[in-house]
Every structure is written in structure tokens, then in C-alpha cells.
Design a protein around this nucleic acid. Structure first.
Length: 866
RNA sequence: GGGCGGUUGGCGCAGAGGGAGCGCGCUUCGUUCACACCGAAGAGGUCACUGGUUCGAUCCCAGUACCGCCCACCA
């Protein structure tokens, strides 16, 4: 039953949102039941950092996931959207270390245990910001299943998979060149390093003397302290005689061999390269191939440790100092010159990364990455939009081994114990670590992405065989930005396939773009164009914010947003509000069955037919993750078809009352009911408020998703209303050109409506175009001929602008002539007639006919002008 | 150095081998009994450039220019 409440004349989001959200949670709409008979639909949230707060990117990401999940729920799925947060190793440790620094302490003052305690304490106090923000956005997540990557269950999952990978030989410990951040003092994986084109200086240095001298070029002179060879290309005639000889490295005086290696590019620099195996990844490999020693000359802070005058200098101080010393010795043979090259920076703190030889843990990615690639190759997981699959393959097919150990305290500690005699034991969950003198656990923790990679199944209870895991794995779709395809998606694929014995973690991956400002610029603090979604929610409402996001979300494309557009979305919500308000004031309802088509007016059949088309289209676009199109279709249906036309056409019927009005009230109720359901996934708050008011139902959250009903398709009614719209628009246009005010009533005589089959609608046309019946003294002073044989004679005495009307007709004439000429040219073209499809030819004929009719009409209208 | 994407009205973006669309902005008119967070009407584009395929290209192909993104161990 309809509550028939009176609504205020403008939508006030703040009043509605909090109340609705609490209601939803209290009712448990978002809590799933693994025992349900319904088919599952699962999305796991791209876990935000516990240190973070929601930004525009989250608003987009969450809007999409919530929309998908809400629609599935309405469609009858057991729809789970699982929330949680990431412990964010380095980021969180940095935050707490900064706090400590403010107290004049370092983490070492506390010690490991106390420090980790302190981080947990920080998490308890400030880690919950995102949770509150998600509620504001309206995220329909199952809070009862919220997870944290450091909680007990997930830690067990981490330990389990580590042990399994270790036992399978897919995790190993080795001394390798890794990316080292001298500020964070930890190893980084390849993807935690950002490369930028930095300006360096290339200096040429002479090694050796006389016959056995060779000039090498380098941008990193300081590493020469660790040189253990010079390399040249084996086929380079300039240096062939030197291969096997020894040259003396300046400053250190070390005598090092000249080795031949394919890696050296004879075209670059001098064609000879100094080799520093401990501080350069290429050199390391050369060193491996030629059995060269690796000399570590820097400590973990980037300070020179090699004996001599440079000891104790920072790497960036050492460089000019060493160049100066070399110059003094006459070793610099060419002046240094500027040289732009890619330099790695820590993605956390932007410090220049130092390649460093050290003992770390690695995941052997080969077989895992192969499986991750195959799952996409054979279609078990589909990536949307498909263009991005190439990037995915490029990544998984060329993956290096993944360095997973981090020299931090906050994170999952590596479950490996070392014995007094060099023993190494990997301890699985539930197993007792070895005890006794000299046994020690590895000091390092795992890369934060290691636990993130387990997210789609660790959150569902893995490694246990839980009801949740059985019901909700594999997940249905993973929604995230394309920027995180490598960081996260590829790794979840690797670990998911591995842990779940070849079952892929998600059926589909839907990638969206980055949120940008209204000029397509990246949002960044330095540009000052960052917008906080909470500000928009405050000002325009969560629905408006969500609609703005969804409306810009084309698959894989960046999403430009601006406050103006958000205001537009707010206007749209208000439009819906007022349309429903109008409906309620006029007794629209959803009680009883919808009248059969043959009992309904053309207008009613038309809007139901349009609704039908909209349902089909919305479903299609939803399934393709085309959220911008979903919004577009619904926006125009709601605003143009329902508000601007249907409501206006219905007004006279409602005013008249009687059975016709009763039927229209039912139809209007139905159309709004369905429209609100279709919009609910995107704008949940306002639709729930309106839908419950309109239908008296419990909540649109649990309402059924509209189903297509082809029997409501009425082409004839659509054509009829299209004609009616055309006639009304033409008359309004004529009136405007005549200088008549929109509301001014004018007497008019209409003729020829029958030819368009809309004679019945004359009263409606008169009402929409504000035309009175001709009365005594009627004088036709303006005549409008409309294509299709309709003529309208108006009594516009006192308000005619002949010049404007002539100008308009002249312009129309030019357009019609151009159109006609185009069509004629085509129809005179033999090739066109022979090869074009029949329907295109026919279409062209009709266009020509229409254009000719239009020309006739214009000629007549021009002649009729005074 | 590789790979990918873009170039459509003032701005931001859709689009399909055969009639150039949307939002915002802009112009004119409007205090009608849902809404001025509104209504009506309108102006505005040789769809980057060059060549090719085709009866027909803004849409397909090749090349050019400019912009953007991703990947990358050439000192």
C-alpha cells in the first residue's frame, strides 16, 4: 500500500543517507548466507591501505562494485561484496616511525615486539577512517566478513602458502642484485620502483696504462671502487687484443681482467664497460658468466664502506669526489657530458634506488606466471576491456622472479628458522619451530603484496575448506584500476591458481581508469586539483557523487570529473525526486496488476514500450561494464521520456479523472517503480527513499530487478508518439520564431493530423502547444506547414516576427536542399544501386522523399508569409 | 629503446562502413497547478594531416604530426 507521504519539494540527501544506511545494515541486506540456494555472486574489494582514506579513485571503484553487487542481489543472486584492508607494510611502518620520531624515538629504541604492538595500537585508533567513509558512500558490503591482511586467519593462509611454495621449490633464498631503498632500508620488488628520466653525467675514465689501457664510460663513477673487470664485445676489433689481459683500476689499484661479453654494446660510449657485479644488475650477470668476485662497497644507507679516502661518504657525495680525484690523476679523458637516462626511485619515498647485492627470498615466478597467462589465454578469466589483455600478457610472460623479503618489522614474518650449523627449516602453520641453542627465525617480513595476492580465497577461509570458500570461490568479477593490473591482479592469478589447484580466482576482471580533473589532468597535490569525495557527498549527496563517477566510467578509460558535473548529477536526483513527488500527489500507485495493453491509451502504451527498451538496454550495458551507457540510457529515459513528455502528456488525463486517469495512475506508478529499481544500483539512497514512498515496499535493495517483457513492445504507439512530438515541437518552434511567449495562449486551427494518424491527440497537442480553439473573429495570420501534411493556422495578431520566420525557413530550405542533393547523387550512382544493400537504398529513397516534402512545405510556408 | 591508446562543436567525452551525438557552457523566451537543482526554442563541428581500399570513409588500412600511458638492467 502506498503511504502517500508528502515529500518536500527538494531532495535533501543528508537527511536520508545516514538513516537509510543504518536501516540496510540493521536489516542485514548485505550479509550473505553460504547455505543459500541462490547462485553466488562474489566481489572482493581491492583492499585499501589501512593508512589511507578514500579518494576519488575509491569512489569510482566502489561505485562500480556496489552497483554490480546491488544489481546481482536484485537479480536473485547471493551477492557478496567482501570488504577489508591491507596492512600496507612500508606505508604503515613509515607512519608509525614518523610518530615515534616526533617523540624523539626510533623503532630500534622500542625493539621489534614493542614496535609491532605500537603499530597495532595505531591501527586500532586511526585505522578505521575508511570504514566510515565507505558507509557514507553507501557501500553495500558484508561487514560481518570484513578482513585485515594481518588478522589471524589471513596470517595462517600466508604461512600455509609460503610453506607449500617452499616445499615445491617455488620459493628460494639467494644472493642477488635487488632494488634497495637506502631510506626505507629494505629491498623492493621491481614494481615498487618507479623509473624517471633523470639527468646524469657520463664521464669517460681511462683504466690501465700504455698498451693495456682502455677507456670506459659511466654515469656512476662511485661504483668503480667495486669494479672487478672491464668488459668488451667479443667481436670488437678495437679491443680484441686486450681480452684476457689485466688492467689497473684507478684509485683502487686493483688489477682486473678484460672479459669478452655479448652483453656489451660496441656502439655505446667507448664500447668498453666497467664491471661492478655487486652494484649493477647487468654487471652482476656478467660477473656470474665470468666468475668475477663481487665487492660490496656501500652499506645499507648508501654510504661508501670501501677502504680509502672515500669511506664514509654518501654515494652522492662520493661521485663528484671520485671524479675530482680521477681528474687530478689525469684519468678523465673526455669532459663529462649531460646524459638523460632512466633512474629508479622508491615508490614509497622517491629516494633513488640502489641496486644492491644481498641475500633475499624470492618467488620463482616461471611456472606460476605461465599458469596465470594460460588462464586468460584459454578464457577461464576474461579481461574487460579486451585491449588490456595484451598488457597483461606482456607482464606475465616476462616476469622476473619476485623478491618477497622486506627488511621491516610490520608484516608477516618469514616462517623460516636457521640453525646453528646453517640448517634452514620452513615452519608451517601449527608446526613447532625448532628449539634449542642457536636457532633463530628469519628477521624479515614478506612484501605486503604477498598477502594481497591471497585475498580472493584467504578472505573466504582458505586454507580451511569452509562453506564460504565452497560457495563464493571463484569470485565473479574483480573490479579495479588498470594501474594495478600488475601489482595485484597478476599475482592473485598466480597464487589463486596455485593454491586452489588450478581454479582461477575470478571469472572476469573489469578494469576502469583513473579519476582525473575536468581537463583530463591527473589529480595531484602539486597541481592542487585534488578533490575529496567526502566534500562532494557533504555538498551534493552520495548519490550525486556516485552518479558522477558511473556516468564517466567507460571501460578502461580515465574518468574526468568536476564539481559542475556533480551538481548536474544532484540535479538529476532532484528531478527524480520531483517526478515521484508529482506522481504521489496525483495518486500514482503500484497496486494491482498493470492493465492489459488493449485497455491502455497510446500514451501509456508508448511509455511502457519505451521502458521495455530501456530495461533491455540497461541489462546489455551492465553486462558489458558500460556504466557510462547505463547512466546515459536511464538519464535520458527519466528526464526526456518520463518527465518532459510522459508526465506532461499525462497531466490532462489525470486532471480529467475517470477510468482513464485510474489506468494512467497505475502506469505512472509502474514506470517509476521500475525506473527506480533500475537506478538503484547506481544511486541507492534516493531511489530507496522514493521507491518505499511510492510502493510501500520494504526496500528497493531487496526488490526484484526488472525483467524484460517483450509483449509490452508497441512499435505503433512509439511511432504515433514520435509524430505527436514532432508536431508539438514544430509548433513550439514556430511560436518561438513568431515571438510568442511560451505561455501565451493563441487561437489556432489544425488540419491534417489524420494523415499522421494522430487526430485523436489534437487536445493533447493543443494543450502542450498552448493553442486555443478558433473562436469568433479568428484570423489566421501565421501558417505553419509541417512535414506529413499537417498545417496549423494561428491567430497571432499583435506578435508576429515575419523576418525571423523567413530567416528560419530559408535556413531550413538550405538544409533540405543539401539533403535532397546528397540523396539524389547517391541514387544516380550505378555503383551504389548495384552494391549497396537494398535497405540502404530504400532508406535513401525515403530520405529523399522526406526532403522533397520538406521543401514543398517550406515553399508553401514562405508563400504564406505576408 | 619497446608496447599500447588518443586526436569528433568552447570544455569533457560517446559513436557506427551509408542520415554528425551526449553532458556542461552559450543565445533567446518563460514567475503554468512536480522540480528555477526548472521549462520551451536555438546557435555551434570540412570528425588532426596525407595517401590507399570501397559505389561510398569521420568510421577500415598505411604513413605523418602532436598528446598521453605502460613496460624496460644498455654503462
Amino acid at each position: 500500500m502506498s503511504e502517500n507521504r508528502t515529500l518536500p519539494s527538494a531532495y535533501q540527501p543528508s537527511e536520508v543517507e545516514q538513516r537509510r544506511y543504518e536501516q540496510w545494515i540493521e536489516a542485514g541486506y548485505f550479509t550473505v548466507d553460504p547455505a543459500s540456494e541462490k547462485p553466488p555472486h562474489t566481489i572482493v574489494i581491492p583492499l585499501p591501505n589501512v593508512t589511507g582514506s578514500l579518494h576519488m579513485g575509491h569512489a569510482l571503484d566502489h561505485t562500480i562494485q556496489d552497483a554490480i553487487t546491488r544489481r546481482r542481489r536484485m537479480q536473485g543472486y547471493e551477492a557478496l561484496w567482501l570488504p577489508g584492508m591491507d596492512h600496507a607494510g612500508i606505508a604503515t611502518q613509515n607512519v608509525v616511525e614518523r610518530q615515534l620520531a616526533a617523540e624523539g624515538l626510533s623503532r630500534h629504541d622500542l625493539g621489534r615486539e614493542k614496535f609491532v604492538e605500537r603499530v597495532w595500537q595505531w591501527k586500532a585508533e586511526s585505522g578505521g577512517m575508511i570504514t566510515g567513509q565507505m558507509r557514507r558512500l553507501g557501500d553495500g558490503v558484508d561487514w560481518t566478513r570484513e578482513r585485515f591482511t594481518m588478522d589471524e586467519g589471513l596470517s595462517r593462509a600466508v604461512q600455509t602458502i609460503f610453506k607449500r611454495l617452499y616445499d615445491d621449490g617455488l620459493i628460494y633464498r639467494a644472493e642477488r642484485i635487488i632494488n634497495w631503498c637506502p631510506r626505507c632500508m629494505t629491498a623492493l620488488s621491481d614494481i615498487e620502483v618507479n623509473h624517471t628520466d633523470d639527468e646524469g653525467e657520463l664521464v669517460s675514465i681511462r683504466y690501465g696504462d700504455g698498451d693495456t689501457s682502455v677507456v670506459v664510460a659511466t654515469t656512476r663513477a662511485e661504483t668503480m671502487l667495486g669494479d672487478t673487470a672491464v668488459a668488451v664485445h667479443p667481436d670488437d676489433d678495437r679491443y680484441r687484443h686486450l681480452i684476457g689481459a689485466e688492467v689497473e683500476v684507478p684509485l683502487t689499484g686493483r688489477r682486473v681482467p678484460v672479459v669478452a661479453d655479448e652483453h656489451v654494446d660496441p656502439e655505446f660510449g667507448t664500447g668498453a664497460v666497467k664491471v661492478t657485479p655487486a652494484h649493477d644488475p647487468n654487471d652482476f650477470e656478467i660477473g656470474q658468466r665470468h666468475n668475477l668476485p663481487s665487492l660490496i662497497i656501500m652499506d645499507e644507507r648508501g654510504v661508501i664502506t670501501a677502504h680509502g679516502p672515500f669511506q664514509g661518504l654518501d654515494r652522492f657525495e662520493a661521485r663528484p669526489a671520485i671524479v675530482a680525484a680521477l681528474r687530478e690523476q689525469g684519468r678523465i679523458v673526455a669532459e663529462k657530458r649531460p646524459y638523460v637516462h632512466a633512474v629508479g626511485h622508491c615508490s614509497r619515498c622517491q629516494t633513488t634506488v640502489e641496486p644492491r647485492l644481498s641475500l633475499q627470498w624470492f618467488v620463482r615466478t616461471g611456472p606460476l606466471a605461465k599458469a596465470a597467462g594460460d588462464a586468460v589465454r584459454d578464457g577461464r578469466t576474461r579481461i574487460h576491456p579486451p585491449e588490456l589483455t595484451k598488457r597483461y600478457f606482456a607482464w606475465v610472460d616476462n616476469m622476473h622472479d619476485w623478491c618477497i623479503s622486506r627488511q621491516l618489522w610490520w608484516g608477516h614474518r618469514i616462517p623460516v628458522w636457521y640453525g646453528p650449523n646453517g640448517e634452514m627449516v620452513c615452519v608451517g602453520p601449527g608446526e613447532q619451530p625448532p628449539t634449542g641453542e642457536g636457532w633463530k627465525q628469519d628477521e624479515d617480513v614478506l612484501d605486503t603484496w604477498f598477502s594481497s595476492a591471497l585475498w580472493p580465497f584467504s578472505t573466504l577461509g582458505w586454507p580451511d575448506d569452509t562453506p564460504d570458500l565452497r560457495k563464493f570461490y571463484p569470485t565473479s568479477v574483480l573490479v579495479t584500476g588498470y594501474d594495478i593490473l600488475f601489482f595485484w591482479v597478476a599475482r592473485m592469478m598466480m597464487f589463486g591458481l596455485y593454491a586452489m589447484n588450478g581454479v582461477q580466482p575470478f571469472h572476469e576482471v573489469a578494469l576502469h581508469g583513473m579519476v582525473r580533473d575536468e581537463h583530463g589532468k591527473k589529480m595531484s597535490k602539486s597541481f592542487g586539483n585534488v578533490v575529496d569525495p567526502m566534500d562532494w557527498i557533504e555538498k551534493y549527496g552520495a548519490d550525486a557523487t556516485r552518479f558522477t563517477m558511473a556516468r564517466g566510467a567507460n571501460p578502461g578509460q580515465d574518468v574526468p570529473v568536476s564539481e559542475e558535473w556533480c551538481a548536474g548529477s544532484r540535479n538529476f536526483c532532484n528531478k527524480l525526486w520531483n517526478a515521484t513527488r508529482f506522481a504521489l500527489l496525483n495518486g500514482a500507485h503500484t497496486n494491482g496488476p498493470l492493465p492489459a495493453a488493449d485497455q491502455l491509451s497510446t500514451i501509456d502504451r508508448w511509455i511502457l514500450s519505451r521502458l521495455q527498451a530501456v530495461i533491455v538496454e540497461v541489462d546489455r550495458q551492465f553486462d558489458e561494464y558500460e556504466f557510462a551507457k547505463v547512466c546515459d540510457v536511464l538519464y535520458h529515459f527519466a528526464w526526456d521520456d518520463v518527465c518532459d513528455w510522459y508526465v506532461e502528456l499525462a497531466k490532462p488525463v489525470l486532471a480529467e479523472g475517470g477510468p482513464a486517469a485510474d489506468r494512467t495512475r497505475r502506469v505512472l506508478g509502474h514506470v517509476l517503480d521500475q525506473l527506480l529499481r533500475l537506478l538503484h544500483p547506481i544511486i541507492p539512497f534516493v531511489t530507496d527513499e522514493l521507491w518505499t514512498a511510492l510502493t510501500g515496499g520494504e526496500s528497493v535493495v531487496i526488490a526484484e530487478w526488472p525483467k524484460p517483457d517483450p509483449s509490452r513492445r508497441q512499435d505503433a504507439a512509439e511511432a504515433e508518439v514520435a509524430s505527436l512530438q514532432r508536431v508539438v515541437t514544430e509548433i513550439r518552434r514556430f511560436r518561438a520564431d513568431q515571438g510568442l511567449r511560451p505561455t501565451q495562449r493563441v487561437a489556432a486551427r489544425l488540419a491534417g493530423l489524420g494523415e499522421l494518424g494522430i487526430a485523436d491527440h489534437e487536445p493533447l497537442i493543443r494543450s502542450l502547444a498552448r493553442l486555443d480553439a478558433p473562436a469568433d473573429g479568428f484570423t489566421a495570420t501565421g501558417t505553419l506547414a509541417i512535414t506529413g501534411g499537417v498545417t496549423v493556422e494561428l491567430d497571432t495578431r499583435g506578435a508576429i516576427d515575419v523576418a525571423a520566420e523567413r530567416a528560419r525557413l530559408t535556413k531550413d530550405k538550405a538544409a533540405a536542399e543539401k539533403e535532397a542533393a546528397q540523396c539524389r547523387a547517391k541514387l544516380n550512382n550505378q555503383g551504389f544501386l548495384a552494391k549497396a544493400p537494398a535497405e540502404v537504398v530504400e532508406q535513401t529513397r525515403q530520405r529523399l522523399a522526406t526532403a522533397e516534402a520538406e521543401l514543398e512545405r517550406i515553399a508553401a510556408a514562405l508563400a504564406a508569409l505576408p
